[in-house]
Design a protein around this nucleic acid. Structure first.
Length: 503
RNA sequence: GGUCGGUUGGCCGAGCGGUUAGGCAAAGGUCUGCAAAACCUUCUACGGCGGUUCGAACCCGCCACCGACCUCCA
């Protein structure tokens, strides 16, 4: 079996590379998931939506994909140091007087709800850090056995200097130089007496009595360091070397750099063939970030219940908005940009709904327009194969939108459309917009008791048509205006009336 | 301070040596009872200064500004 060529930008090499899986026909992909100590904000979601699109495209190409996206539910500490600080989840549990696992469950549920709203597919495996304590402890032991970690006072640290000396690799992913890391002079790197070098990081952290989440180990009763869970779980489910590792840009350093070090330390091999990083969602020109207060929750945007944007935006508008920019570019969210996305998306939906109504020429004579449609489809494969260029593919979709509208307005145009034209148009929208980009094209109002609504609308529009025949403009306008208030738009065309929902 | 990345028209956002990106907004027109939608046409670009080249938004240099990372980050 052959696959369409796919080029991906590999952060490790800094170049676009032809994607070739380690095992033919199969792809192992790991994406860093959320830390579930609070609600995921829209910026977090952008990364997950980006990798959902990547997952979808790999599936579409015919690969059998094992997509692992973890839940981090232990090890993330409040503040800047990785010793002695409080666990983020433990902190919430203490403040709210609930079990840490209640915190984890609550925000995991919320995360899943948001992912479902944004039409993200579920990963093949969604492992959690607390569910893999044994694997993490084993990995720490392997790293110690291989001489890349040391114990101090019950905590275990990764020896970055030794790793760098032996492999010359530390900092390769993020472009760091080990000397600079060691000579790092930021004030908050001080007071880390247990480490041999400031750049060393914790694999296992000894916990005091007040710490809610702790497990026994040969070194101490404690908990695993932040980066360890991803190394342990990716190794467990995808093997010591797998195809794709994804995550947000902001995880490159230290998280992913340390992951590589840990995997190497434990398995003595490079874990990942292609590192893919999504760029940040900006708001007010700055990275969306919860700790800076510069963030918005998906539900706040979907419900319109927020102070930042003037109105509600549907989940699919958000997804379309995200797909209109490249995953490796920053994307600035503004009211105007969302409004533009809403209109543009609505244009695609309207055209999609018109496809089945297009007039076809009888017979199966080949028509010229099909060549155009086909070349746009081929173009979209090229765009997607070029590091997932969704904005460019969407530009081609808008070309198809124009074709649909032109032929809908003027069915007599040239040689017209045939069965094949309709099939190609439908499949272009279904494949690229729905399947690959994950943007649902069918209005919710239609999927929800579709026939019922359609039937009612037929009656209403028939009454309006009668009124118009009688030149009863007040009645016909009343119907149109009332429907408009309900966000249903009536569109008078040459060949009859169509309608669509506004959002 | 170090290391990266960016600066495209009113807004968003592709392109990265020669070809209209696209969407939204705006203007005019077609259609329409009116409107909307759609269609046609039009408009406003590549941060600044140099250099390379027959040709630069795209390559190189300098400058300016913005952002990200530098142990909370998707």
């Amino acid at each position: 079996m052959s696959y369409r060529p796919l080029y991906v930008f590999n952060t490790l090499s800094g170049e676009k590379e032809l994607f070739t899986p380690i095992v033919e026909g199969r792809v192992g992909m790991y994406v860093c998931g959320p830390t579930v100590y609070s609600d995921v904000h829209l910026g977090n979601c952008r990364t997950f939506v980006s990798f959902d699109m990547i997952y979808r495209y790999l599936l579409h190409l015919g690969y059998k994909v094992r997509y692992v996206r973890n839940i981090t539910d232990v090890g993330h500490l409040v503040g800047d140091t990785d010793t002695g600080a409080e666990d983020k989840i433990g902190r919430i549990a203490r403040l709210e007087r609930i079990e840490p696992m209640e915190v984890v469950q609550k925000y995991s549920n919320g995360f899943h709800e948001v992912m479902a709203l944004l039409n993200a597919l579920n990963p093949s495996i969604e492992p959690s850090a607390t569910g893999h304590i044994i694997e993490q402890i084993e990995m720490v032991q392997k790293i110690i056995d291989n001489g890349f970690a040391y114990e101090t006072n019950g905590s275990v640290y990764f020896d970055t200097l030794k790793y760098a000396e032996q492999t010359g690799q530390y900092g390769k992913l993020s472009g760091r130089v080990i000397d600079e890391l060691i000579n790092e002079s930021r004030d908050n790197l001080k007071n880390q007496g247990e480490k041999r070098h400031p750049s060393d990081f914790a694999l296992w952290i000894k916990a005091d009595e007040s710490h809610l989440m702790r497990w026994p180990s040969k070194w101490s009763v404690g908990f695993p360091g932040w980066h360890l869970e991803c190394s342990a779980m990716s190794t467990k489910y995808l093997g010591t070397t797998f195809d794709i590792h994804g995550g947000g840009q902001d995880l490159k350093f230290p998280h992913h750099e340390n992951e590589i070090a840990q995997n190497h330390g434990a398995c003595l091999s490079n874990p990942v063939k292609y590192w893919l990083h999504g760029n940040m969602l900006l708001m007010n020109g700055k990275k969306m970030s919860k700790s800076d207060g510069n963030s918005i929750l998906p539900m706040e945007l979907i419900s319109g219940n927020n102070d930042i944007f003037k109105e509600a935006f549907s989940p699919m508008t958000l997804r379309f908005f995200m797909m209109q920019s490249h995953y490796r570019s920053t994307l600035d969210i503004t009211y105007d940009a969302l409004k533009a996305a809403e209109k543009g998306f609505s244009k695609i939906k309207d055209a999609y709904n018109l496809i089945p109504r297009l007039k076809k020429a009888p017979g199966s004579q080949p028509v010229k327009i099909n060549q155009t449609i086909l070349s746009e489809i081929e173009g979209m494969y090229e765009d997607m194969g070029n590091d997932f260029n969704t904005p460019k593919a969407l530009a081609r979709i808008f070309e198809l939108v124009s074709i649909v509208n032109i032929y809908h307005n003027n069915p007599q145009q040239e040689e017209g459309l045939n069965e094949e034209s309709i099939r190609l148009l439908s499949s272009a929208f279904d494949t690229f917009v729905s399947d690959v980009m994950g943007i649902r094209l069918k209005d919710d109002i239609l999927t929800d008791g579709e026939n019922y609504t359609e039937g009612l609308m037929d009656i209403i529009l028939e009454l309006r048509a009668k009124a118009r025949e009688n030149k009863d403009w007040p009645t016909s306008d009343l119907i149109r205006d009332k429907l408009s208030e309900m966000n249903i738009q009536v569109k008078d065309g040459k060949d009859g009336v169509t309608w669509s929902t506004g959002k």
